[in-house]
């Protein structure tokens, strides 16, 4: 719990120090370059539509990404299984998650969609297997 507060504090400091940020909107192929900041309140410029504005806000407040990776299995023939987060995860937790996945070992057979980690860092995000594999 303490660790979590530290993270929040750090990201707040970071925010006030580098307030305005250049963000490329990926909502459509137009790819607007949006300049956005959070102080004194949220402001954005350069976006062509409301979606770009919302995207920029999200990218500033809590940017998230879907993480995909592979994890080791206990099988000698099928050594790795692909996995993903079932929802986008806040970017600041990604490194810790990848480190954790590096240590995970799952046993086969596994079913597509079955969870191997739940509630990553209290975010409600789970890591699930993305391929059914049997130990043949």
């Amino acid at each position: 719990m303490k660790k979590l507060n530290l993270w929040t504090l750090r990201s707040n400091v970071w925010r006030t120090m580098n307030d305005e940020k250049q963000i490329t909107c990926i909502c459509c192929p137009r790819g607007c370059r949006v300049t956005a900041g959070l102080t004194p309140e949220f402001h954005a410029a350069g976006e062509a539509c409301q979606r770009g504005r919302e995207y920029a806000r999200e990218e500033l407040v809590s940017p998230k990404r879907t993480v995909t990776a592979v994890v080791r299995t206990d099988s000698p023939s099928r050594r790795y299984a692909p996995v993903k987060t079932d929802q986008p995860l806040e970017i600041r937790y990604i490194d810790a998650l990848l480190r954790e996945l590096y240590r995970v070992r799952i046993s086969l057979p596994c079913r597509l969609g079955s969870a191997i980690l739940t509630n990553v860092h209290g975010t409600g995000v789970n890591v699930v297997v993305t391929r059914s594999l049997s130990d043949e």
């Binding site: 879907t66 995909t68 990776a69 592979v70 692909p82 993903k84 597509l112 993305t130 391929r131 059914s132």
Partner: peptide, 22 residues
């Protein structure tokens, strides 16, 4: 292709390559 982004047109959801194949 274990990354996601497959199937948006076809299934209306983002799948990884292995999920699309399956």
């Amino acid at each position: 292709c274990i990354h996601n982004g497959f199937g948006l047109q076809r299934f209306g959801e983002e799948l990884t390559g292995p999920e699309y194949a399956e």
